[in-house]
Amino acid sequence: MSALATKLRQLRADAGQTSSIASARSPITVLPERSAAKSKGTSPSTHKTLSPDLRRLLQRHAQLKRGPAYLASNDRDVPGIELSPGLRYTEANVDWLAPPDIVDAAFARMESVHHRRLLHFDTETTGLAGGTGTRAFMIGAADWHDGRFRIRQLTITSMAAETAMLRTFASWLADDTVLVSYNGKCYDSPLLKTRYRLARLPDPLTGLGHLDLLHPVRRHWKGQWENCRLATAERELLGVVREDDLPGSEAPAAWLTYLRGGSARNLRRVLAHNNQDLKSLAGVLLYMARLPHQ
């Protein structure tokens, strides 16, 4: 453990902060902070030099720190083709449901829409905390294309590829696209808008029609089902039973493990999970469109 990290851990323990990392106490011989904060503020944008103590400590720290090797795995296979460095693309065309030309969206209090305009989408993210620190590492989108259900998935294997992923996804959207999602209005869409903003790209989502199935499902079945999650809806309405499904909550860890050089196995399971989510989205949509009007 580096000296600065040790030192900080000690200070935090002193302050009563509990840390998940066991604090390893060791004698302190180096003091990082003592002269760092003297008399500042009078000169704008000064480039302060580090105190000798801190510099020494950081040098040692840098020597100690080499990438974590314990995660390294030989299973690094992420499916799909590489559109650009770090951006993988998979496409599957499957026979999945036969949509009517015009999908009745009255159940969602929206106008009827031609199925060609529908784009089902679902993101997999690094977490649920929200704010600017949460990102999507996978965007899945599906539509009926040439009579078949086309499932396209973008996965980034490096942080730097995010911008390319966002650009690609934007290229799939047309002015008359109607998005179909499950809780996308509150979750996926704002999250992507934040990512477009951070990437300094125009936001392609604002202004598009958006059919968020969560709310209509809730209106119909709240209280009847144990909950109104997509997994419940697909089971109740479509009879879908998933095998070897990676729970959505484990998706962040799956990607992180891969990112840090670990196995891609769970990342592939995330792709499968996302794939099924998109199919279920379409299934739930068509099921609800066929419900008698209330």
Binding site: T126, G127, A129, S158
Partner: peptide
């Protein structure tokens, strides 16, 4: 945080503030 090249990106599922 995750380091990639000379960039440090937030990677944890938490809201530090």
């Amino acid at each position: 945080l995750h380091r990639e090249g000379d960039r440090w990106e937030w990677i944890a599922d938490s809201y530090p503030a």
